[in-house]
């Protein structure tokens, strides 16, 4: 499997990274270099092997249903928008979204 120009552009768009047309050829080359090297995994027999979902083999820890204080709780709109490039009345402000 190797990428063509259109796929490089499509992937860049999916990843929301603007790329210039003149960058496509070398990006394509680099990505294909990496993917070509990864290709060796096709040699491995994975018949009947379960995919790794987690390294940790314990039961999932759960929270109790109470509202928290601190970072994992609410009631801190100032903190939430403190680093935002643009805000208004504790809202994040972004270019108009068209639905």
């Amino acid at each position: 499997m190797s990428l063509d120009d259109a796929t490089v552009k499509k992937v860049a768009n999916l990843a929301r990274i603007a790329i210039r047309d003149e960058d496509v050829p070398h990006l394509k080359e680099e990505l294909n270099g990496i993917l070509g090297w990864i290709e060796q995994l096709q040699e491995v027999d994975i018949e009947g092997v379960e995919a790794m979902t987690s390294v940790v083999e314990t039961d999932i820890p759960m929270r109790t249903d109470i509202t928290a204080d601190g970072p994992t709780g609410g009631g801190q709109p100032e903190n939430i928008v403190a680093n935002a490039p643009k805000t208004e009345d504790h809202f994040f402000v972004v270019p108009k979204v068209v639905e």
Partner: peptide, 12 residues
């Protein structure tokens, strides 16, 4: 072909 296979090889 990529991700799932990789996670299986990872398991091995």
């Amino acid at each position: 072909a990529y991700y799932l296979r990789a996670q299986k090889v990872r398991k091995k």
